[in-house]
Nucleic acid binder design. Sequence first.
DNA 1: GACTCTATTGACATTTTTGTAGATAACTCT
DNA 2: AGAGTTATCTACAAAAATGTCAATAGAGTC
Lengths: 198, 198
Amino acid sequence: MSIESPRRIRRSPEAARENILSAAQGLLLDRGPQALKLVDVAKGAGVSHATVLHHFGSIGEVQTALMEQMIRQLVEQILTAERSDDPEGQLESVGQVLFDAFESAGGARLAAWLELTGEARRLTLVREAVGEVISGPMAQKGISPDRATNLVLVAVSLAMGVGLIGRSLAELVGRPPDSTREAAQAFLKAGLAAALQE
Amino acid sequence: MSIESPRRIRRSPEAARENILSAAQGLLLDRGPQALKLVDVAKGAGVSHATVLHHFGSIGEVQTALMEQMIRQLVEQILTAERSDDPEGQLESVGQVLFDAFESAGGARLAAWLELTGEARRLTLVREAVGEVISGPMAQKGISPDRATNLVLVAVSLAMGVGLIGRSLAELVGRPPDSTREAAQAFLKAGLAAALQE
DNA sequence: GACTCTATTGACATTTTTGTAGATAACTCT
DNA sequence: AGAGTTATCTACAAAAATGTCAATAGAGTC
């Protein structure tokens, strides 16, 4: 029987916060917002719950910090795709990334959570991204700001819906999980094409 | 100073459950799922929390009962509209009701909640409704079951997204709250029309 | 009016969740 | 190596949320 040496991992404050937030994100994505309890987050991060409080002050601040981080990630993904591509494929590509962001990265779950908890005002970052898409690639395609806004509203809503319930819905009607997304992307593409033909 | 008579309202078990559930629904709709605490629900219903437990056994059962009731309401709305209308307007009408159900009645919030908490299997009722729409009005329009399923998946996802974040999104980009829904309905209608022209 | 039934309640008990405080250990700098 | 800083931990405390129980009070029946 040896006395075990009390090994601790000591992180920089930033690393510690990051570690905790990523654990929290994992919990949010696969167990839902209700799972964001202090001890559970701590356990997920491999630290004591006191450590979480040391870095965030309260569980509530963990949650808002998580929201902000996820929003930043979401917007970054979209803007990156919007900027880097060739102007031709931009619209399709942005559509692609939009669905990706809302699906895999948990964007839909985040947005749903924000909406359900009434914190949707935090989405100011999103407004900027939307504005950039409207005045950028869509303007280049000759789409008026007004119509462009409508298309974006529809596209984002659709991506949101698909990201949130698309897979469940498909399985519910006996289809492969991705079929909702595929159908939605095709539908959106057709609608965009129609909008361009005027 | 008079001794106040301890007036109680004594309801039938059914009325009591209904009263409690409707209070719970109110809480869910305007404060989110996190607000569904035992005491808060009880306060909303104007009874003691012990009464809630007497009728439901636990707060968890209140929540699942609420889910089931809301799902039933949702499906009923959709099926009613699907059945009662003239065959011509059915598709448009169902689209209308779909958006209504997911928006005003809180269907989107319900579905989001189910999804976030991983209880989406409860939606078997929805499968039946979907099946009925596919084999009913859509078949009459000459749409193949396969294509019909795709359209339904898209329509429901879109209604879901619009119902959940449509208003916030519109306000976020400086539009009137209803504009997301209007744009989405127009977009969906156009897509349906295109699908019929083959 | 007395009796029965049970929905309702206040008071208590338990569990869950969050927050606090002092001690300890990991890291940096000298 | 020694000292200072502070991230981390354990143990404790507080608060919040859920659940239990015996007593009370409506409403119907005899």
